[in-house]
Design a protein around this nucleic acid. Sequence first.
DNA 1: CCGTTGACGCCAT
DNA 2: TATGGCGCCAACG
Length: 110
Amino acid sequence: MEDRSAFFEQVYQVVRQIPSGRVTSYGAIARFLGAARSSRMVGYAMNNSHIYSDVPAHRVVNRTGLLTGKHHFGTPDRMARLLEAEGIVVIGDQVRDFDRLFWSPEELLK
DNA sequence: CCGTTGACGCCAT
DNA sequence: TATGGCGCCAACG
């Protein structure tokens, strides 16, 4: 893979490991990859994630548990429905019990 | 070539 | 506690 897209590939690699029913944040992924100040790039990577069928982009939300990427799933409520299908409760674009459902990429090191 | 624009997050106020 | 400003950096027109 090209060096240019290496970062994106690493992002997809992490996202693929997020367990069903759990969520993580753009910033957590950025920090895990050693690019703590490039959380926006993680979001940008997600924008291209549609080319892969095995990257659960809906499990990535912002650091407060808000579904900031909901407008990139075709219909406005698609992201929330995908999450609810995994047992996650979404109220007003906000993941309930976000702290409890949060999955840290650090888990990959275990 | 350069200004704008984000699926974000930290910090100052 | 709530809001706004700004750094980040690739993509777009």
